[in-house]
Design a protein around this nucleic acid. Structure first.
Lengths: 209, 209
DNA sequence: ACCGCCGTTGACCAAATCGGTCAAGACCCC
DNA sequence: GGGGTCTTGACCGATTTGGTCAACGGCGGT
């Protein structure tokens, strides 16, 4: 790709990336047209092909970028948890989800794009990129749980399952909604919090409530 | 549409409907080509236009059919609940989810198709059809909860929220997986059941466990 | 005033794909 | 072999596709 892309004003880079992610997130690689991306971004198609030689290259770059963004957010979160010594499962999870929602707000098409890219049947992505995402997902839950104080849970509770359940519900919510206005994201977050609170209330031992 | 479609062997009808639902479920109305549908079904494009005069007509018919199928399943389920006097929240929910999974197995593209159709920005569907779906969704939870014995829940539990949480998680699972083999569906069901069991264990009063 | 550089564009291309038509083939029972 | 039904491949004009290219406007330097 043309490295001059990076010397564009950041908000313009975001504009192009977000538009592309949204469009790619709505359909398969093949069905997504460069024209639609350009139109959404409000730039000419020529400009896209000026910075990215190919549709494929644009796609690969986006995926790389998306994963890196996730990784960075995740790492910063872990760092913060360590620094402040956060050990409460639900507090940390809530904070993590908040960050995730903020990311959705700044990059509305990110998660749908990543999901679609991951399950794309035509192998437009190199196995290496795919593996990178696998690693991110595998690590995140594990290293998160390792830092939490799991003794607050009642006997018989599997914290892994709790994470999974809440994550699934978040994915379900994200799948339900299309647009990504600030209020909508906030409503999603509120519902997530309500569910987490319920679980906390009934899965924690009484002395920790 | 050509009514002779209904005198086709039922499995052939299913083949065509399912192929169309899957294809329509993968992209917007505009992006879905009649050619792709025909190819997936293993029939010629001409045949499609022989039975349905339009892409639009096919689409509308599918949506109608999908909702009717959901309605019928739902009604049969309510009927059965009444007949056997089922009042346990989680038993009924599990049975309901099992039925849903069986439906996914027989019509793999149904739910994704309905969801996509519902959120389609171009109004390719008449408001009447849309309203029909709204009614189904609104009724289902309410009339389900009305028949259940909710006193088994601990104080402070909102059963509506429990339904919602489990439904969301199911949607999340469905969004994660693409293919719909029998084993995959079964795995999904197992995970759903595990989550439901956990909630049951900690949200029910002890005397009901 | 002129230059060169820069991000940007509209017009343009061949090729593919689109929704849809139509006449004819394949198969059946009579 | 005739009539009817299901099904198809070839074909249509129109649109869209990914991608190219010459040129535009603005701006800082001289």
């Amino acid at each position: 790709m043309n490295i001059k892309f990076f010397s564009l004003p950041p908000e313009r880079q975001d504009l192009i990336r977000n538009s592309a992610m949204i469009e790619f997130g709505e359909g398969s690689f093949k069905k997504t047209s460069a024209d639609a991306i350009a139109k959404r971004a409000g730039v000419s198609k020529s400009l896209l092909f000026h910075y990215f030689k190919d549709k494929r290259e644009l796609y690969a770059y986006l995926f790389q970028y998306a994963i890196d963004a996730c990784m960075e957010v995740f790492n910063r979160q872990v760092e913060r948890m360590s620094y402040y010594g956060e050990t409460d499962f639900f507090s940390a999870l809530e904070r993590g989800h908040k960050i995730k929602m903020d990311m959705v707000l700044r990059m509305p098409g990110l998660f749908r794009f990543v999901m679609r890219a991951y399950y794309e049947r035509d192998s437009v992505l190199s196995p290496k990129l795919r593996k990178k995402l696998d690693d991110v997902l595998a690590q995140s839950t594990g290293s998160f749980l390792a830092r939490m104080d799991l003794s607050k849970f009642k006997d018989g509770v599997d914290p892994r399952q709790v994470v999974r359940l809440l994550t699934l519900s978040a994915e379900g919510m994200l799948a339900e909604t299309g647009a990504c206005t600030a209020e909508e994201i906030n409503k999603l977050f509120q519902e997530y919090k309500k569910n987490a609170d319920m679980l906390r209330q009934f899965l924690y031992k009484e002395e920790y409530l």
